[in-house]
């Protein structure tokens, strides 16, 4: 392969592997330490000199995590907010993107620019007024409040617009001749053709939604209606010194996204490479 022509022969690549392994070790160590600590007793987690391998592999710390937080409720809130945000964002962004890509209407380019500018500004700029909005509509401490601002995405609109622009108009013309109306063309012909973009967008939006802290922290207050990251952060306030419980909890809450990432790494990387990482 031409690709390999300029690479060093395989047996001379070991210094590169050595450096990469060292760096990868530094990346992975905190995860290993987290897992080991989740199985330790509290005294073991605070021992000097350190206890590396826990004396037993019991699930005590996991039990304490489930006792101290309504994990089931928070899981439902986190998943609900994620589903609402992803589904809503895909729908709204693809509709808008199709409108921008395929139609001319008065003020189109100005409105598109407004989309990009508004949604790329730092989120803190809108936070107070968005909070007051949720308060005025009595939405504080509800699922819609957590998901609503994230339904709108410049990034998603932009990416999908690019995807629509890349589709030759012949497809729409053929569908139109077959008697499909505008919305049918969008829904049945065009949208399915943006599959890879929708997939990348789904993954990245899920990541932001699952991991987000600041906004859910601001709009939720009761213990059962928070998202998992907010609950976990609060737990630290109460159980600041019970590291096995904190490690067990942080490991469990991170796990779903890590598993999805490992299963769908190529789609993640494609999304990141095309866009960077910013909600």
């Amino acid at each position: 392969m031409a690709e390999q022509a300029r690479r060093a022969p395989r047996h001379r690549q070991w210094p590169a592997h050595l450096l990469l392994l060292l760096a990868a070790g530094a990346m992975v160590f905190p995860f290993v330490w987290q897992v080991l600590t989740a199985f330790k007793t509290v005294p073991e987690s605070r021992a000097v000199p350190p206890v590396i391998v826990p004396s037993g592999w019991g699930f005590d710390a996991f039990g304490r995590f489930f006792e101290s937080l309504p994990v089931g409720n928070l899981f439902v809130v986190s998943v609900g907010a994620l589903v609402l945000r992803v589904a809503g964002q895909l729908l709204l962004a693809s509709l808008a993107a199709y409108g921008f890509a395929r139609f001319t209407f008065p003020g189109r380019d100005a409105i598109f620019a407004l989309f990009l500018i508004m949604l790329m500004a730092p989120s803190q700029l809108f936070l107070i007024a968005q909070f007051n909005f949720m308060k005025d509509f009595a939405l504080l401490d509800t699922l819609p409040a957590i998901a609503l601002p994230g339904l709108f995405s410049a990034f998603g609109t932009f990416l999908l617009r690019q995807a629509f622009l890349a589709i030759p108009p012949e497809f729409e013309e053929a569908a139109r001749l077959d008697g499909a109306n505008s919305f049918q063309i969008f829904w049945k012909v065009m949208l399915p053709m943006t599959g890879p973009t929708l997939a990348a967008l789904t993954l990245l939006t899920s990541l932001y939604s699952w991991n987000d802290l600041l906004w859910p922290l601001v709009v939720t207050s009761s213990k059962e209606r928070m998202t998992l990251p907010v609950g976990l952060a609060n737990l630290q306030g109460q159980y600041g010194t019970d590291y096995p419980t904190l490690m067990a909890g942080s490991m469990l809450v991170s796990l779903p996204l890590i598993v999805i990432f490992i299963a769908l790494q190529r789609q993640f990387f494609a999304g990141i490479a095309s866009s960077g990482l910013k909600g």
């Binding site: 905190p30 942080s250 809450v253 490992i262 790494q265 993640f268 990482l277």
Partner: peptide
């Protein structure tokens, strides 16, 4: 290697902070 270096990106920042 790419997967290992990327792990912290997909990990909950709250969890990262705690560890």
């Amino acid at each position: 290697y790419r997967v290992l270096f990327f792990l912290p990106v997909v990990t909950l920042p709250v969890a990262v902070g705690m560890v």
